[in-house]
Computed example of a mutant assay.
Amino acid sequence: MNCPICGEDTVKPFRPFCSKRCADIDLAKWLNGSYAVPSQREDDLDDEIQDAGEFKDRPH
């Protein structure tokens, strides 16, 4: 199995990662929103459309 961050072989204590560093990089991506699970709910789509319109109307 290869580390999803750097591609090196995994190490048992850090599986599925090769090191604490790669595990921390992955955690940071989740925490800052780089990873996201898309929603299939129509309410969420309506909210996104409304938010986009409000953002567009704001002055710089």
Rank of each mutant, 00 (worst) to 15 (best):
S34G: 09
I25L: 04
Y35F: 15
A28E: 06
Y35A: 05
S34Y: 09
R58T: 12
K56A: 12
G7L: 00
K29V: 04
E48C: 09
F55G: 13
C18H: 00
P38N: 02
E42Q: 09
D46M: 09
A36H: 10
A23T: 12
K12P: 10
S39D: 10
P38T: 01
H60C: 14
P13G: 06
Q50Y: 14
P38S: 01
E8Y: 08
C18L: 04
S39P: 06
F17L: 01
K56G: 08
I49H: 09
R41Q: 07
I49A: 11
D44A: 05
N32V: 11
E48R: 13
Y35E: 03
D26T: 00
C6V: 03
L31C: 03
C18K: 01
K20Q: 15
P16K: 07
T10M: 10
G33R: 03
P4M: 05
V37P: 01
P16G: 08
D26K: 04
R21E: 11
M1C: 10
P4K: 04
D51L: 15
A28T: 08
D9L: 14
D44Y: 02
P59M: 05
L27V: 04
K20A: 15
S39F: 01
D46S: 03
Y35C: 06
A52Y: 15
I5C: 03
L45S: 02
E48K: 11
S39Q: 03
D47Q: 09
G53D: 10
